[in-house]
Structure formats: C-alpha cells, structure tokens
C-alpha cells in the first residue's frame, strides 16, 4: 500500500470531518476539528497502523481566533510513513479530548502542553504541571507572557523573579553582514 493509498483511506472514511489537507515536500498534514480528534486518532492507530506518536505540540496564535493549535506527529513503524494532524482550539476553556488512551506516550506531552499553554485535556489520568511546579500561576509559553518572567511566590515551594534583560533579548539578526556584526547581543526591538 503506498502512502497515497493510506491517506486516501483516511480521507474517504472521514470526508466531512477533515477541514484541510496539505502536502509539502512529502509531508502530509490533515486539519481536523478538535471534537473529531479522538475518533480519527483511534482510526489512525488501529486501521492505518500509526502506532508511534512522535510528538504533540501546541502553538499560540495570539490575536487570531481560534487561539491555540495542537499538532500531532504520527509515524507508522511497519509502513515507515509520517502523518501530521492539526486541530485548532479556541482558548484554554475549549478542552480537548486526550489521546493518552490511544498512545500512552501522550500522557507527558499533554501535561507539558497544559503546563506551558494552559490547554486542558478531558479524560487525562493525571493532568498536572510537569515542568513548572503545581500552583505556579502562569502559563509561560503563551505569547502574552514576557520572556523575562513574572514574579510569583509560593513559600517553601518555589519563587520566581523578573530576569534583568539589560536592554532586550540577546538575539542575532539574519543578514549577510559579518559574524562580528551579527553576534548575539542586546538589541533594542526597534532595530
């Protein structure tokens, strides 16, 4: 079965539920709605043999509606085929069904998404923060959270302070200038 036949199987079964399909340089991406996600994911694992969940990640499109996007990277070991599933989530109140009952590795990936973006997962066995500590009041990887952090205090557990950035993030600029001019140093955002 070629890759194209595989994806056709998916496309034919869920015609109405797939919002978009893109293919770029051999990578196939399907955009689906969040409430169809669990069904399509179960079909991918059981019938199409996508048995390896490579990664789940999330994007914050601050300013767009819906705000968040969750991206699943699947891989089929017996067939050696990659697949990407994307679904847009309006905001953290729009909780998504967990896929940790389909691929157990999703447990920690979804905990990280909850910790960093605040998106909740329905039916997750242990949804709590994984990188920051329980009780940390912010979601750090959102676009409206500053790079230098916000002060917080949990006595006897942890504390955070604002990091001195001394004139802006230390970034380099892509250009054709010499590396001496491009070196990472504090650049005011206007330049």
């Amino acid at each position: 079965m070629t890759d194209q036949e595989l994806f056709d199987l998916l496309g034919n079964k869920f015609e109405q539920k797939i919002q978009n399909k893109t293919e770029f340089r051999g990578e196939t991406t399907y955009e689906i709605a969040a409430n169809n996600l669990h069904e399509i994911a179960a079909f991918c694992r059981d019938k199409l043999l996508f048995d390896y969940l490579v990664d789940i990640t999330s994007i914050d499109n601050f300013g767009e509606e819906p705000r968040f996007e969750i991206i699943y990277h699947l891989y089929s070991m017996p067939r050696a085929v990659h697949l990407r599933l994307k679904s847009k989530v309006p905001d953290e109140a729009g909780a998504v069904d967990t896929v940790s009952d389909i691929w157990p590795t999703a447990n920690w990936h979804e905990r990280e998404i909850y910790d960093m973006m605040g998106i909740k997962f329905n039916g997750h066995p242990d949804l709590r923060r994984i990188l920051m500590w329980d009780g940390y009041p912010f979601f750090p990887l959102r676009k409206d959270f500053p790079l230098e952090g916000l002060p917080s205090e949990m006595p006897d557990v942890a504390f955070t302070k604002v990091t001195p950035l001394e004139g802006g993030p230390f970034v380099t600029v892509p250009s054709t200038a010499t590396s001496k001019d491009r070196e990472p140093r504090a650049r005011p955002p206007e330049l």
Partner: peptide
Amino acid sequence: TGGMYRSYAVLQGIDQ
C-alpha cells in the same frame, strides 16, 4: 549568574 538562560525559569545566580 544564570548563564545563557535569561528566562522565567532560571535563578540568575545561586548567590541570590
């Protein structure tokens, strides 16, 4: 001093 990690999660030097 916190090294290259000037971010929300890293203590900027244990001398704090």
